[in-house]
């Protein structure tokens, strides 16, 4: 095998996220109300809130699975669909959402990150293979590339899906609970990678319960409970008082019973 390319491959454009007065609901009941956010390219933003505060809903909208009832999302100035077609958005799922018994190897999963850039029949080019190799090496999974995904440890599983996002080369990364069930080494590796991506100009949005790690790598923080309670630089927003408000506040009146 060829030695890895020393410089990581370029990201697809520099893409910020602009969420403007977004309201989303299920069956007419609003789950997220009037959210306005502006995430600059080259920043890591932590998304913090209780279960049911709307983190998952917000992710679903950012992935195009839920249509907003009002408001809009722009990514690097594009509509969501346009941004997705340009491979600007990558998603790292929660472990619970993945079928780990699926008969698929680590290599195949990471290669799926390249599908959007391939022709309709998804024949990988040499460049695709190089990027997959590079991504696997960056997350220390190259020796395990032939493994079926269920034969990986919790931390390795997370890294496999992170490698898929790396192979895609997207400028916007959405990570849903990337630190749940991972060991301290993997957490460190993931954080270092995210910082490296940010320095390349990526926009990273992380939904996480792991409050302790947030100040160590998040530039900005969004505290939500159905709407944005506070948003800004971590040093200003990530305060005891604000967290108390986020995690003790009774659900807003518009919440479904």
């Amino acid at each position: 095998m060829a030695s890895p390319d020393p410089s990581p491959p370029a990201l697809q454009g520099l893409a910020g996220i602009a969420v403007d007065h977004l309201t989303v609901g299920y069956n007419g009941r609003p789950a997220v109300v009037d959210v306005t956010l502006e995430l600059q390219a080259g920043s890591i933003c932590g998304l913090v809130g209780m279960n049911g505060a709307g983190k998952t809903t917000l992710f679903k909208v950012l992935m195009g699975f839920l249509k907003p009832s009002s408001g809009s999302i722009r990514i690097a100035g594009w509509s969501l669909r346009q941004a997705q077609r340009r491979q600007l958005v990558a998603y790292v799922p929660q472990s619970e959402q993945v079928d780990w018994q699926f008969p698929i190897r680590v290599w195949d999963v990471v290669m799926m990150g390249r599908y959007g850039a391939m022709g309709p029949l998804r024949w990988p080019s040499d460049d695709d293979r190089r990027r997959v190799q590079n991504a696997l090496e960056r997350v220390d999974l190259w020796p395990l590339r032939e493994r079926q995904i269920g034969a990986l440890s919790g931390g390795q599983r997370k890294r496999a899906f992170l490698a898929r996002a790396l192979a895609q080369g997207a400028g916007v990364l959405l990570l849903d609970e990337p630190f749940s069930g991972v060991d301290i080494n993997t957490e460190r590796l993931i954080i270092d990678l995210l910082i490296a991506l940010r320095d390349q100009g990526a926009t990273v949005l992380i939904a996480t319960h792991d409050l302790e790690s947030i100040p160590s790598f998040c530039d900005r923080v969004v505290l939500i409970n159905r709407t944005v309670l506070a948003y800004g630089d971590t040093s200003e927003v990530f305060t005891q008082a604000n967290l108390l408000r986020t995690f003790s506040a009774a659900p807003s009146p518009s919440a479904p019973s």
Binding site: G64, R85, M112
Partner: peptide, 21 residues
């Protein structure tokens, strides 16, 4: 011909969606 897209659709529709399929 379309086995790769169909396999991705079975495995991870969220990702399929995110990359514009």
């Amino acid at each position: 011909l379309w086995r790769r897209d169909l396999l991705l659709f079975c495995f991870d529709p969220s990702h399929a969606r995110t990359i514009g399929l």
